[in-house]
Nucleic acid binder design. Sequence first.
DNA 1: CGGAGCATGGAGAGCGCTTTCCGAAGTGTT
DNA 2: AACACTTCGGAAAGCGCTCTCCATGCTCCG
Lengths: 352, 352
Amino acid sequence: MTTTGGRVPVGERLPTLEDVARVAGVSRATASRVINGIRNVDPQLHELVWDAVGRTGYVPNRLARSLVTRRTGTIALVVSDSESHDDDPFMSRFFADPYFGRVVGGLMSVLRTAGIQLALQIVGTEEQRTRLVGDLRHGQADGVVVLSLPGHDPLPRMLTDAGVPAVMIGRPADPVPINYVDLANDTGAALAADHLVGRGCRLVGMIAGPADVPASSDRIAGFRRSMARHGHAWVPQVSGNFTQESGESAMRTLLTDHPEIDGVFVANDLMALGALLALRDAGREVPGDVAVVGFDDSSAATAANPALTTVRHPLEDMAAEAARLLMARIDDPAMRVSSVIYEPSLVRRQSA
Amino acid sequence: MTTTGGRVPVGERLPTLEDVARVAGVSRATASRVINGIRNVDPQLHELVWDAVGRTGYVPNRLARSLVTRRTGTIALVVSDSESHDDDPFMSRFFADPYFGRVVGGLMSVLRTAGIQLALQIVGTEEQRTRLVGDLRHGQADGVVVLSLPGHDPLPRMLTDAGVPAVMIGRPADPVPINYVDLANDTGAALAADHLVGRGCRLVGMIAGPADVPASSDRIAGFRRSMARHGHAWVPQVSGNFTQESGESAMRTLLTDHPEIDGVFVANDLMALGALLALRDAGREVPGDVAVVGFDDSSAATAANPALTTVRHPLEDMAAEAARLLMARIDDPAMRVSSVIYEPSLVRRQSA
DNA sequence: CGGAGCATGGAGAGCGCTTTCCGAAGTGTT
DNA sequence: AACACTTCGGAAAGCGCTCTCCATGCTCCG
């Protein structure tokens, strides 16, 4: 018997479950059961309740619900930065970098369909980290995806110690039993080395990222190893910090120190863009005089001129996988710590 | 009298305020007062309580607190998309676009210091919008920053009707009494027109964005008006969708239809990048044969080759202002609806 | 010296929801 | 027809916190 009445306002305040129950003529418990689709409720009451929901305009209060269920339907994306970068400039550069957007996009593609929202958190200081972990233990979020920037970050360990479901994007620098999704950075770098040597480069240099971050050191190691295998025992190397400007100045240094250089592997596309600029300034043709291979296959790669030959880094897929892994971990606290490593591939364009 | 004891575990569960009170030997109310820094608490008890907090390792439960205070310390960044884009490809492109990152960076620069976290929400369907507004009315977030993509978006109106504190980045397409922060897009476009005409271009075209989004139509209007003022009653125009590829194909079209074109204003940098590619393919020199002016002054502008002359769009500042505006509105529900318009400026580089 | 006035801390009522625990009713078995 | 067994709805106990209300004890003034 559907009581098709009009709207039932409940005064100033928003309708609560109590109101729905009253309008439907059942107890709060029953209303709750119906709304949450719990088994065993008389179809008649079922309809009565939904009818009341419609008439009152009831919307469950997620906060109140979370308080008792200990589930928030939220996953935190934590950007863990080192204290020194606590000021704006660096972070805003970080956000503008395609890296951040690609990660968010990948995460959202999965979370969105699951109806989970993403909360962005940035922690720089020790205190912020402690606070974050404290909130997380209370179920502020059901789990976290960690983007760890500094080389040795205490956060991963803090998270696992606190028993917070967490997944890192990029392996932890220190051995920590934490789930992570990563790229075989060394293999990717080797791909670049093979390609540069294969196209006949005699002296190839590398523009690396900060040595203390795993993704960066893995690329260095992989590149060096592969070059050595090709008989290049030593490769000139200059470090940047993943920004375009740093790539530009690194390239200048390389050019000054080794004028005969005819190939360069750059640890990310943004720096490669800078390198391209420096090369053009120096009057070197790319790839004619100097071949350039980037890393990431970000949107910058196709925007570059000449278009960048680069190592594809399926960041969106990896982030999506991280989200899936995290959701699985949340649903099964006993899940064993696991990692997923993606294989990179070389995308040939014009720069090499 | 500080009772400096050791740690006081409370069993499996996390310590609650109740535990702190018990350890400190005061009532829950007093403990709460101390922790929240409420006036009039005996200094002795004050110390006793903080001591207990330390010994129990107490961290307030934000959820429980929010339930009663009706404040969450969270602001939602809502990306309102049109239903048709509900599938991945578009959204992931959106996130990879510097636009998104710049907005997030700007927001975070303000929110971070205020200790407010950002929750990302994407709504595409009508149902998702309704749901979002429902949650928001319950105080799921203290306010929202809206990034509205489609031309005619019902969300702004829904938000104001529901009384949810909201600020848009970019003016609403339809007249809605909502706070917003925007750029004088027309002025910016006029700047571009002046510059192109000023450098002697005879036939300049425009690569526009979707006509139904305000930012885009304002740029079109401003550009046309200014060109008309310079005696160019008509300008060839092709539309894209703000992506690099669309800019590339728009440029090809323009080139085919008007081979004598010697200047082009592109509604955003990403499309300008594409235009640059098309021009190079067509063997046209930039700026020699064709001068190109972009819009946004995103990182893509400096990455371009030649570097893009573009209209500066202080998106980070605007987003930061949006955050401040929103926080003010949250603290003062009676605040009148206000808007802040930023003035653009021309950044001269090599492309024009 | 008595009572008004104030500073202070405790008891307890919620915030809105889920879920356990029960009793009442319905179903099937011997 | 009596029993065990299942199904179903309601009462009520929280989740962890804030904050109003009230009782207490003290100061101060006439």
